[in-house]
Amino acid sequence: MAQAAYKKPTRAELRALNKSRKKREIQEKADRRKRLGPWYKRLARHFRLYWQLWLMVSPAMFLVILFSYVPMYGVQLAFRRYDPLKGLTGGDWVGFEYFEKFFRDALFFRIIGNTLRISMWTLVMGFIAPIFLALLINQIGGEKTKKFVQTITYMPHFISTVVMVSMLNIFLSPDSGLIAKLFPTINLMGNQAAFTPIYWMSEIWQHCGWNCIIYLAALASVDTSLYEAAKIDGAGRLQLIRYVDIPALLPTAGILLIMNMGSVLGVGFEKIFLMQNTLNIQASEVISTYTYRIGILSTQFSYSTAIGLFNSVVNFIFLIMANQIAKKVSNTSLF
């Protein structure tokens, strides 16, 4: 008897199948809720079963609510003309006046350009370097040597920002700096073109070892039988890295990249501010330092709040876009 030929389902049939499957899932959820009772009984049962876990995370939740959500009450200051005598809600409502003022500012495009340039260089190079370092450390055979290298590489992470900038000033000093002797005709800390490379290179040197820890943990979870099977098939070191290590790192790398995209315009204030001087201010002025000058030094609190809110909204948009793109491309996402 001849075997029947396979018939590919049409789009209408697939659509009807998906629709019926969704209806069945919805009905199953409804039946499950009906069996478990009203929502308040389900909630009470949940807390009765998992109260230890909620108790454990309650301090962290309290701190997040206190320092991340309660201050959002002051966001309305971006839409009001602040009056110290009337408080946050007593000023006149001006709508988007301060946002328009920022967009019309002569420094707007320079500040956004500096922020994007520094942030994107730091994001891209700071994303690639820990992966590369983790792959190299994972290839070290001796366990003691591997731990020693790992310890040496993540120790700079614990250097404070002030000490880090002081080290940069010493090494790049035109008179006595060790690195500056390689460029005798250039004042590196005062050179506008050199500011961005100095920033992201020092960031990588300081945080690369610490950031690679999570990748090393992902590599440690790889089944050793995969390495053995690849070696039996004749794979060398590069083939092991390409076909075993890198695929194991991709899900972790995707999640970290999405999280980093949420701070595209969030260049750190402390290090930028400490590295600034009158010679490199044209290339080093970013949103965070400009907000400080406008809000704290010039006491334009409403204007600085509007700039900070604009920064947060743009970062949030980048986070959502990166998450949706990653979900469609690699089926990896935060939500």
Rank of each mutant, 00 (worst) to 15 (best):
W121I: 00
N138F: 08
E25L: 11
K41Y: 10
K7V: 12
A283Y: 03
L219M: 10
P9N: 14
G113R: 14
G126Q: 12
G308Y: 08
G254Q: 06
W205C: 04
I186Q: 13
L63D: 04
R80W: 01
I246H: 04
G308S: 13
H46Q: 12
P174M: 08
I281H: 06
P84R: 12
S119C: 05
N169F: 13
V267Y: 01
I281A: 12
F195V: 02
I26E: 15
T252F: 00
I281S: 14
S160E: 04
F273M: 10
S202P: 11
Y227M: 03
I281Q: 09
A326R: 02
F183R: 06
Q3I: 14
S225D: 11
V75I: 10
S202G: 15
N331M: 10
I198Y: 05
I246K: 03
T151P: 00
F99M: 14
F108S: 02
I320G: 00
S166W: 07
V162D: 06
F99I: 15
N187W: 10
S119D: 08
I111N: 02
A78T: 08
K144E: 07
L240S: 10
T10M: 06
I204F: 00
G308Q: 09
G91T: 08
S68W: 10
A220D: 08
N211T: 06
I159Y: 03
W51V: 13
L53K: 13
F183W: 12
Q150M: 14
I152F: 14
R117T: 13
Q282I: 03
Y6W: 14
S160C: 03
M72H: 08
A230W: 04
R35N: 04
Q324S: 08
Q300W: 09
P247N: 05
A2C: 04
L55Q: 12
R32S: 13
N280D: 12
I241E: 05
H207T: 11
Y73H: 12
L238W: 10
K7M: 04
I65D: 11
S288E: 07
G142P: 06
R293D: 00
Y98C: 02
L297S: 13
N260G: 07
Y292F: 07
F62H: 05
S225F: 02
L49H: 14
I246C: 02
M201C: 12
E13R: 15
V286D: 02
K101Q: 10
N260V: 00
Q76N: 09
T289Y: 08
V165H: 03
T89W: 11
F310Y: 11
